[in-house]
Design a protein around this nucleic acid. Structure first.
Lengths: 200, 200
DNA sequence: CTATTAAACGACAGCAACTGCCAATTGGCA
DNA sequence: TGCCAATTGGCAGTTGCTGTCGTTTAATAG
């Protein structure tokens, strides 16, 4: 078992500490009512250090977005290019749904923080926009040849993300008590609908 | 012809002046590179006055969002409650499309400013979120009785807005030279798809 | 174990967005 | 004209965020 050098371990530790402190404060007093100074005081680092780890106050709420974006790309790539694009898409959606189910506690925290601030609600959309781009790209080709036009792929991706947001929103509002897999049915249904209604 | 009192006329004038100056500067140097001080200097008002007319720097970009939100509500209400909810929806979408066509110059300015800043791109979604809520509400009842469940209405509204964003994006990218009405076909088609695939 | 080097950090100064407060100006009206 | 109320300007202060620079601390070579 290789251990990281001390320096790296410390960095990870402070980053996690900052996330933990910030999350707690955001949940307690809301995002806007919490200042950076409060966070760094309780984490015992300088304000300057905070901004070395996180580019903005908002970005500490979305610390796991990078990973989630990459995961979507992975899932779409794994579903082999030989598969029908809509099948690839369905598999990827189910895989992500499974991941979300496993990370529900963390996601629920994030949801509660995000919905406490109008600012955050819209910033949260950045990830969705990137998801749309990735999905649209994936729908535009099949075994190296063009499949959907950019126009239609954008429409399908946009509609899909819109629907996903609605489903996830409902899941979160119910405290993630339902099984997400049971809520996905409508999403898969929607993809099938598109597959029929939006072939070129 | 009733004229407004001088005081009101002046207020309207300064507000329009601020919008005009800000729009010009944003287009010239980008949203983030423009400071409030530059705007108020050129408009010859104090910074304090700026923030009496606009709550934030962002809000001056979205000065017409209030009107657009109300317009959607109007169009959905005009299509009488007796009409089938999906018909009401289609009519409202076509009416809005017509309005957008008429205001294309202004909308294109806004689009170019918005897409110059990541921050603005996501803030711009706030209006879309409100659109979703309005449409979802409208889909949940028909002649006073429940129509779609909240769940399904949310999904349809989310998907619809997602698709609309894609279509509008393409329209703007083409400099609004195409007729929006010709691009709407896919949107109407989508509503029909939902009407068939998502009745209870 | 010590000396050197580079990475990480803290402290401080400064900018831009925004707010609260109060004094000055201006329009509405008797 | 003179008074009242709406609008504005000036100013000080808070918060998020950045550049700079000197100090600390981990890695490593001797």
């Amino acid at each position: 078992m290789e251990r990281l050098p001390l320096r790296e371990r410390k960095k990870i530790k402070t980053k996690e500490l900052l996330i933990q402190v910030a999350t707690r404060l955001f949940l307690e007093k809301g995002f806007e009512a919490t200042t950076i100074d409060e966070i760094v005081d309780q984490a015992d680092v300088s304000q300057r250090t905070f901004f070395r780890y996180f580019t903005t106050k908002e970005s500490i709420v979305f610390w796991n977005h990078d990973h989630r974006r990459e995961a979507l790309g992975q899932h779409l790539a794994n579903g082999h290019d030989a598969n029908h694009p809509f099948d690839r898409l369905k598999r990827a959606l189910l895989a992500i749904s499974k991941e979300y189910q496993e990370q529900k506690d963390q996601l629920l925290d994030e949801y509660r923080i995000v919905t406490s601030s109008k600012e955050l609600i819209s910033s949260d959309m950045e990830l969705d926009i990137e998801f749309e781009k990735i999905i649209s790209t994936s729908l535009q080709s099949w075994t190296g040849k063009p499949f959907l036009s950019k126009r239609r792929a954008d429409i399908v991706a946009g509609a899909l993300l819109g629907a996903s947001r609605a489903i996830l929103g409902e899941w979160f509002e119910g405290g993630c008590r339902q099984k997400l897999s049971s809520m996905d049915k409508d999403l898969i249904r929607l993809v099938d609908l598109f597959a029929k209604g939006f072939r070129e």
